[in-house]
Amino acid sequence: MLLEILGLEVRYGGIRAVKGVDLRVDEGELVCLIGANGAGKSSTLKAICGLVPVHAGAVRYAGADIGAAPVHELPRRGLVLVPEGRGVFPQLTVDENLAMGAYARGDGEVDADLEHQYETFPRLKERRSQTAGTLSGGEQQMLAIARALMARPKLLLLDEPSMGLAPMMVAKIFEIVREIAARGVTILLVEQNARLALEAAGRGYVMESGTIALSGESSGLLADSRVREAYLGEGA
């Protein structure tokens, strides 16, 4: 088991955004966490990365409790988040953004990895000397993912990668996510686009108002009448 969350609680002031979530991700899996806006999906991811404090419960990654680990420690251990809204550094060039992705690494293969990213994302290669702020939304999302891959993640957390993108680009991003998973990177994918997420993932969790409402194999969830009604836009 690569990631295990037990009884996670996150609070903002007096408000409980996450109310006791249990979740696990095994090595090599692509797991999705779906749910409506405000269900607590992003808060769960942020708590895993230490961006918001863990109020109660445990976050275990690769056998160690990381509930209190400083944010910048996690990439060194192979846990990397692609944040919601992409979070590229707008005034750094594409090259510099990717170099920052490898900041935590001390090995000599960074340049080779950089070229590898450019093979995967030729659009980024064309724009390698441009500042990231000049890229389109889809290109920025590719950059955010490529930058995370520069850290050579064992576990990649993706927070709403399809948000705000045109349908063509959404399909492209999901294709990329599948490719990354096929290369053996474990992925925890948070998405509002439930159908695409479940189709890509092996297992899924459905979050509702801070708790896990449903979980199981993606095929089962796709067939579940409650999921179909609430998240796939199909009438009962």
Binding site: L74, F89, P90, L92, A104
Partner: peptide
């Protein structure tokens, strides 16, 4: 570069290690 990255988005800079 890390200084400029931190200036532009400290939270994400932390996530990069």
């Amino acid at each position: 570069t890390a200084m400029r990255a931190t200036a532009q988005n400290p939270q994400v800079a932390g996530l990069m290690g």
